[in-house]
Design a protein around this nucleic acid. Structure first.
Ligand SMILES: [Mn+2]
Ligand SMILES: [Mn+2]
Ligand SMILES: [Zn+2]
Ligand SMILES: [Zn+2]
Lengths: 140, 140
DNA sequence: TGCGAATCTGCACGTCTTGAAGATTGGCAC
DNA sequence: GTGCCAATCTTCAAGACGTGCAGATTCGCA
């Protein structure tokens, strides 16, 4: 996802308005590595802008995802997560605390795949599940 | 997933009751390659057993999943899907009609993976998205 | 400064799934 | 075969997540 300044410019260039709500979300998402949900962003945003609505958070994040500025991820944790990192990468999720981290995988072209007959595959995602270091330590 | 007969025996051995509802679901799931949702199974089951409740379908499928007789899959299609195939395999989903098919992947041990530091990974799932042959043809 | 379209808020609704309570029943003792 | 009781089933309400809609607000431009 581009910087708040770049996004501001891009929005205006596309005839979209640059509202305080959007700017706040630009800032909160830029460089954010937490893979937050709309709800958790709403919590954070509410601290800096009491009165902002959850609906606007959803709306803005979806707009940014449609524009390709961020990715929305369904990692099976209940709520969709939003990711400003649009590099080709994958994820690992802690089954206990739902923490998410980026995983980079290379060499996948060497995989031997059977069963895709005729499918026009547009996306491949690899999801790792397990326990994060903290939760693994706690459960000993 | 084991055969209806084996499951009947296994249920009784564990002190669980073998009800007509459960037996019907054993039959409907055994060898089922459609990756059905609870709702779609409920539709099918209702034809053979009017009055069966959606709640019972969810309950029974979840029980079977807990017992390891089947896998519940969140493929991002809205509702969880249930799979009697418990072999190590992955899935491809059609983004248009939500059709699901099994995909077998080998050579994944040759992948170079970065970012799993400290995570105790218990499961890895690969999800392919795209268009099935039929939908790909329709959209030409 | 004023206007109008875009946006925001608040709330209702839709979907999927589970919780809870009361009715029903499978499996066993007799 | 009968009766009992815990397990199960049905029904209905509610929880979680996300979206549609209507009316209030406001950004961006003249
Ligand atoms: Mn990421
Ligand atoms: Mn499968
Ligand atoms: Zn954790
Ligand atoms: Zn299709």
């Amino acid at each position: 996802m581009r910087s708040p300044a770049d996004l501001t410019e891009a929005f205006r260039a596309h005839g979209l308005k640059v509202t305080p709500q959007r700017q706040l979300l630009f800032r909160l998402m830029h460089g954010n590595e937490c893979h937050p949900t709309a709800e958790s962003l709403f919590q954070t945003a509410s601290e800096q802008m009491p009165g902002i609505s959850l609906r606007t958070v959803y709306q803005t994040l979806n707009d940014l995802a449609t524009m390709g500025e961020l990715r929305s991820l369904d990692l099976g944790t209940g709520a969709v997560r939003f990711d400003p990192n649009i590099d080709d990468h994958h994820h690992v999720v802690c089954d206990r605390c739902s923490d998410v981290r980026d995983v980079y995988v290379s060499g996948s072209d060497a995989l031997s795949i059977q069963g895709l007959d005729g499918f026009a595959v547009s996306n491949t995602s690899i999801l790792f599940n397990g326990l994060c270091p903290r939760c693994a330590a706690d459960s000993e």
